[in-house]
Amino acid sequence: MPESFERGALTEAVFYILLSLHEPMHGYAIMQKIERLTAGRVVLGPGTLYGAITSLAEKQWIAIILPEKDIRKKKYVITGTGREVFQKEIDRLRELLSNGENM
């Protein structure tokens, strides 16, 4: 679990994973979505993504949707707790931005 969780700020990877998982998605689709959203600025490596997904699932900020057939890929989706955390982060970022712009 990245330390920055405790400080309240989400890492960029976690932020974009939570954002993407407002609809159920498998790992590779998350990577592609994040790359598209940031116009290629944030490209998540599969190892980084896997580590983040595992931590998020342990924290129950996201849930794993097991496929009916074993050959299908696992999908992930944000939980109620995850949505709350995500909303709090949006509020925090809004405060940051407005303080920064009012300089």
């Binding site: 990245p2 330390e3 890492t11 960029e12 990877a13 790359e35 490209v43 998540l44 490596g45 599969p46 190892g47 980084t48 580590g51 983040a52």
Partner: peptide, 16 residues
């Protein structure tokens, strides 16, 4: 399939 690095942030590279 594009750029390929397993770890792309400081936390995960540190752990590796």
């Amino acid at each position: 399939m594009g750029r390929f690095d397993i770890y792309t942030d400081i936390d995960s590279r540190l752990r590796h």
